[in-house]
Amino acid sequence: MRPFGLLSPETVEEAAALLEEFGDEAVICAGGTELVLLLKFGLADPAVLVRLDRLGLDGIEQAEGLLRLGATVTHSGASGSSVVQAALPLVATALSNIANPRVRAVGTLGGNICFAEPHSDLSALFVLHEAVAVLSTGAEERRVEVGDFLTGTLSTSRRDEEVLVAVEVPHPPPRTAGGYARFVIGERPNVVVGCSLEVDPSGAISRARLVVGCAGPTPVRIPAAEDLLCGVAIDGKELDTAIPEAAATCAARCEAHDEDDLSGWYKRKLVQALSRRSVSSALERARELSVR
């Protein structure tokens, strides 16, 4: 690892200017839990690290209908926040599942989604919640849904001079229940399925959202499976066929490439089982909500 310059700009404008000035020679470094590993193994060799510690991006704020999570909030900072736990319980759970306590103490939300490693629960949950990435050059701010921000394995649509400053997560609408199931080997989640169900006053599912994460390069929604759940009563017999069909559809339609530890074929089996579990878990929560 060769010595690099460490720069700590005081404003986002300054950060953007540095990124533009140094181009390929500069890399943003927040917590560094991914980047320092890359540096150690020579997989990244920047001349300059642009730090984000002086930019004040570590806040959690309530705004109109949404929760704004600063990009440099750590995983444990977010999962331990009573505000996040109350408003976004699934996200809080996903955060507390990341890797190990050391990575959670130092790693950041922004770093996680900008690194765009496919094996991320957090990305899948953000896509489930229709979270929005807020990108800034100081002068200009741009918003992109996380689902669109993540473009492939280790790839995002962030422009070189932009800094991810926050992730804005809309509050789930009232009468919404969620569930999420994961399969993990060691610290790596290999398959994650998140489910969110909105229930109308008559007790039928009015809106369903199903996201499969970690199995392919990016998290993907499965609209065909979601359609199978819409209109179904949360206490009805229709569920006996709707759930297995939705699960099978998720397995068939998701992206699941072969990897060293799991084949695509096996991942699809997992997607099927985990889809069933996450839908069932969301339904259980939905029934609790409607009883109250």
Partner: peptide, 18 residues
Amino acid sequence: GACTVLVGGLPVSSCCYL
């Protein structure tokens, strides 16, 4: 985790910490 130390009271992997 063999390299765990506390920085600001929080556990970090010192092998991957500047």
